[in-house]
């Protein structure tokens, strides 16, 4: 992955600071895209991933926490690095509780920034990969018939075909046929693989 393809979004209303940060981030080899308000950021349709968000806690109208909540609500798991000129313990606790990737106090040394960005981007890259996998698995799940889905749910509990047949009130032969369809459609070789895949999309639990 080339560094220039990684995007760092910056939302800060202080123009001077934002521009200096854009420049620095740019020099670090990322694509820095700045916004002065939370709304402006949300309105931009071209959010590229993997990326991270350098977010000022204080913004004139809708603040950083609001933006983070909104992104989460939209299902965008963009890592957020809070930057603030004034931070205290309750504030940082609140930020981290909300799932912030990092919390930087202005002025912050470039090394800290770089480390935070790298961590966040790595995380987001993982996020993106994870999301891609989930997407793929969900597509497989969606290709199942309702009966196959029922059988799959029984299979991942570790039951034998005979037991499943008894539970669902059908012949063992039919179950064996469905199981084969499930394993094929879900593109897994073993029950263990199937469970892992379903855990990824949160069905197994």
């Amino acid at each position: 992955m080339s560094a220039t393809s990684l995007v760092v979004y910056i939302v800060d209303d202080d123009r001077n600071f934002r521009e200096s940060l854009e420049e620095l981030v740019g020099l670090m080899g990322y694509r820095a895209i700045g916004f002065d308000t939370a709304e402006a950021f949300l309105e931009d349709p071209r959010i590229q991933r993997p990326a991270c968000l350098l977010l000022d806690m204080y913004l004139p109208a809708l603040d950083g926490f609001w933006l983070q909540d909104t992104l989460k609500a939209k299902g965008i798991s963009l890592p957020v690095i809070y930057i603030t000129g004034h931070g205290d313990v309750p504030m940082s606790v609140k930020a981290l509780k909300k799932g912030a990737s990092d919390f930087l106090l202005k002025p912050f040394p470039p090394e800290d920034l770089r480390a935070a960005i790298i961590t966040a981007l790595t995380q987001d890259a993982a996020n993106v990969a994870h999301e891609a996998r989930q997407h793929k698995i969900m597509a497989c799940v969606k290709s199942l018939t309702p009966r196959e889905y029922e059988v799959m749910c029984q299979v991942i509990t570790g039951k034998l075909n005979k037991q499943i047949a008894a539970t669902l009130g059908t012949a063992e032969k039919t179950i064996r046929k469905h199981r084969g369809q499930v394993m094929r459609k879900m593109r897994v070789a073993s029950v263990a693989d199937l469970v892992r895949a379903l855990e990824t999309v949160g069905i197994a639990s």
């Binding site: 202080d14 600071f17 200096s20 620095l24 020099l27 000129g85 004034h86 202005k106 002025p107 470039p110």
Partner: peptide, 25 residues
């Protein structure tokens, strides 16, 4: 102090960013 820290950290942060940029350049 808390409020002013914000005010003052803003330019300080900017300065540090710029200086770091300069160093990298």
């Amino acid at each position: 102090t808390a409020a002013l820290a914000h005010e003052i950290n803003q330019p300080l942060g900017t300065i540090l960013n710029r200086a770091s940029s300069a160093k990298m350049i």
